[in-house]
Design a protein around this nucleic acid. Structure first.
Length: 374
DNA sequence: CGCGATGATTGCCG
DNA sequence: CGGCAATCATCGCG
């Protein structure tokens, strides 16, 4: 290594250019006769003709010599510094980026759908949950669900292989570029920092590609969802037993048909309404929601047209009354109002407002109960 | 096929 | 956040 400083001269590429050429020039100037000159010119021409043959080696040699120059590291550092000041300072501002909210949204969704996350764990856990939930009532829709799950796992697989492919490509490309830059950094000023920046640019580029993948995967899942699980498309009526139970509760709590969370859960369990009905959100605890839906619909529809439900009401009231008398002793008719509206109000509506709004119902209500109102 | 029944969704409100 | 009211979209019966 200590002989490097002399390399340039020993190779003869330093200042005079072509060594042989310089030699001959000197010889030429030394000679005085025209013959010698002609000879020299001929030599030069000859060498010029052959110079292209040597140029590659020549360049290599030159490069090598330059590399090994003792001032090279210092010069390189200075150049890097200058470059950094001029170039990097311009771009330096936009370096850091906050985590993209869109990307986070996509990630969350993929995770929630069981596409991302643990390869088998999330998927099979969700599948198991779905299967367990379906076990209650739906023999028919378990087939639907399995179809859905199959498609979903297909999507998941594609997603993962693509993701892996991208990651691999990213790594390969990064190392390639890094090698290239490292190689080039021997002849032109490239600081490690710059390489780092390049790498981060590459990563950003690839992650934007990944985001596209995530986007399209999300879309695919949404389409799958709307195809298979959109409740409105694939609505199933509750079976007869379930509606019986729900109606029973409704009419026996007619004065306050607002089941608590526990009651809803109880009802859902009793009816076998698990997630048998299709749902939109991640398959979770939708039994209560369904019960809530049912009660919401029932309340509103009952209130809208009590007359139409009168018969039904009487029927269930009679049934609960029979049950009450047959099962228990006589005194406990606390929560079995055999006729509706014994409290004088329909839940939220004041009684008199209600009457004035629905004159045709006055007969029903008044005749049925509560003479004290007269 | 038409129409009422019905479960689910959406927007609004307290 | 839960309930209400309106609305949607499918179901199921005649």
């Amino acid at each position: 290594m200590d002989e490097q400083p002399r390399l340039m001269h020993s190779h003869g590429v330093g200042m005079a250019g072509h060594p042989g050429l310089a030699q001959h020039m000197q010889d030429g100037t030394a000679g005085t006769d025209g013959e010698g000159r002609k000879q020299d010119i001929g030599d030069i021409l000859q060498q010029i003709m052959t110079i292209t043959d040597q140029s590659l080696d020549e360049a290599q040699a030159r490069k090598h010599a330059l590399n090994c120059h003792r001032m090279k590291p210092a010069l390189f550092n200075v150049l890097c510094e200058i470059k950094e000041k001029t170039v990097l300072s311009i771009r330096g501002a936009q370096e850091e980026e906050p985590p993209d909210p869109q990307l986070m949204r996509l990630d969350n969704m993929l995770l929630a759908e069981g596409v991302a996350g643990p390869e088998k764990g999330g998927g099979s856990a969700a599948a198991a949950a779905a299967a367990a939930a379906t076990g209650g009532v739906g023999a028919d829709n378990s087939a639907e669900h399995s179809d859905y799950r199959a498609k979903l796992s297909q999507i998941r697989q594609i997603y993962h292989t693509e993701l892996e492919k991208y990651e691999q490509a990213c790594n390969e490309f990064t190392t390639h570029v890094m090698n290239l830059l490292r190689e080039q950094s021997r002849t032109r000023p490239i600081s490690p920092k710059e390489i780092e920046r390049m790498v981060s640019i590459i990563h950003r580029k690839f992650s934007s590609i990944q985001m596209q993948l995530k986007q399209s995967t999300c879309e695919a899942v949404m389409i799958l969802r709307s195809r298979f699980l959109d409740a409105r498309r694939k609505r199933r009526n509750f079976n007869k037993q379930a509606t019986e139970i729900l109606n029973e509760y409704f009419y026996s709590h007619l004065s306050n048909p607002y089941p608590s969370e526990e009651a809803k859960e109880e009802l859902a369990k009793k009816c076998g309404i698990t997630v048998s009905q299709v749902t939109k959100k991640p398959i979770h605890l939708h039994c209560q929601v369904q019960v809530s839906n049912w009660f919401g619909n029932k309340r509103i529809r009952y209130k809208k047209n009590i007359g139409k439900f009168q018969e039904e009401a009487n029927m269930y009231a009679a049934r609960t009354a029979v049950n009450a008398t047959s099962v228990s002793a006589h005194g406990s008719q606390a929560n079995s109002p055999s006729t509706p509206n014994s409290a004088g109000e329909i839940w939220t509506l004041d009684y008199f407002d209600f009457l004035s709004f629905n004159p045709r119902l006055t007969c029903t209500v008044i005749l049925s109960e509560d003479r004290s109102l007269w």
